[in-house]
Design a protein around this nucleic acid. Structure first.
Lengths: 265, 265
DNA sequence: AGATATTTGTTCGTATGTATT
DNA sequence: TAATACATACGAACAAATATC
């Protein structure tokens, strides 16, 4: 029988919630300071250890940050995108996300992001994109460079997302890119040589930039859709090749299983 | 001057990372137990308080859960979807997400989810959907029931997402639904009476179920797209009405500002 | 049902590290 | 350099929860 919820909440959790409430009620903004440990100890009639556990919980949630020294204490903090993605990764860690799953979202979201970003990119943004393309504009000399090129290809889309107005959309796209970077299946694929795909991807991205420069939203949407469809197919093909190898190489196959899960945020 | 990264990492964080590594390396699965506090104290040569802070950090990240008593200790845990959404909400808390932002994603993702769910729903699923529609199949008697109906309308889509194969897609859709439930702007809107929208929404959902039953993927996609576009427009219209009110009522306007941010997960 | 043993949860006192003045 | 104010870490003891007998 599954045990039901504990009726008596832990003291630490009560304090965490109480502090969260005061943050909201007082409308505390990043940089504002919470009462110091000593005051919190008095306020909640709790010991130092309990208060510290509560503050640790808030810190992990990206809500505060503590500093030592005079004038130090716990300060309100904006959660970084990186931390948000790490926490979300911990959730999807056990969920067996496939390449097709990721691209199902990318295929519809990246085009929206590109269109949304188009109006805001300006010349400096185009230069940034050109600089990134330059990273994979040539055959890689070694495995390391090949890997860096794959990562840079994803960074291209990350930069585009930076200019999108819709923060929710941009975050989702960037998270999908991160998933591709960290999923073990993808890591294996990215290690494989694939010169044709590289050149084709660049062609798409150059077309995309041209369409953006002339403000052609329809073209931007279409090009990015095609780009994503092509990228997905290429990934799936390479995955099929890899799995074909595994069928004839039990050792590598076993490693593939073990390495499916990469890291915890 | 911005202080650079602390060269000396905190003891607690080192221990957190060390434990995470052992979880990954040993391939620990939900239900497996970590060493007890006493052993961890020995293993890391740290004090009880430090170990407890580290365990608290892991607990907040949804990676473990602790139990008292004989045979108790820290057990590996799968992060619940609810916790993942709470943590993600903390990140988007400060990001000023608009209704249009949310619907930009819903318009393209909900149709995909519905199509993906179609093949798995079966008769029991259709009954669940019918039961939910029954909640808002009539005029609400009071404000409370009106509110419950708005929530149930979102639950309809949540149930559909349950049957989708793509866990990433389903999670995203359900998170968007949660955003609509918790965003203060939306809460104000949902409180407004809107009989026409209610009936129109039901019509879409009934058509959707019919299309799903006959396995017509194209129709499912189209109907859901139209449904979302209609829902967005209705929300935006109601929002415009509300803001019109605010223009003539500085007090309510101020409240709207204050209440924009609802809660912290 | 009640006693007991085991393990986390909490408290207190103290000492150390770190940043500001 | 020294004094100060704050977080960080340690250790021993006690309280509360819970599985087992």
């Amino acid at each position: 029988m599954e045990s039901d919820q504990p009726l008596r909440r832990k003291r630490t959790d009560e304090i965490v919630d109480a502090i969260k409430r005061t943050i909201v009620e007082h409308g505390l903004q990043p940089g504002d300071r919470l009462p110091q440990e000593r005051e919190l100890i008095e306020q909640f009639a709790a010991s130092k250890g309990t208060i510290r556990e509560a503050l640790k919980a808030l810190e992990v949630q990206g809500l505060i940050r503590t500093r030592t020294g005079p004038g130090g204490g716990a300060f309100i903090e904006r959660m970084s995108e990186q931390r948000a993605m790490s926490l979300l990764s911990n959730f999807l860690f056990a969920k067996e996300i496939s390449i097709a799953d990721i691209y199902a979202l990318r295929k519809v979201l990246e085009p929206l992001t590109a269109v949304s970003a188009m109006a805001n990119i300006e010349e400096a943004g185009y230069r940034r994109l050109a600089d990134i393309i330059a990273i994979y504009d040539h055959e890689p000399a070694d495995a390391q460079e090949r890997w860096d090129q794959r990562m840079a290809e994803l960074d291209f889309h990350s930069v585009v997302a930076e200019y999108a107005d819709n923060a929710l959309l941009a975050f989702t796209c960037r998270f999908l890119q991160r998933l591709l970077k960290e999923q073990a299946v993808c890591r294996d694929i990215y290690r494989q040589p694939r010169p044709v795909l590289r050149q084709r991807g660049i062609a798409y991205q150059r077309e995309l930039i041209a369409a953006m420069r002339r403000g052609d939203a329809d073209a931007v949407h279409t090009i990015m859709s095609d780009h994503m469809a092509y990228a997905e197919q290429a990934m799936l093909d390479l995955q099929a090749e890899l799995q074909g190898d595994f069928l004839h190489d039990p050792v590598a196959r076993g490693q593939g299983e073990v390495r499916r899960r990469a890291t915890i945020g």
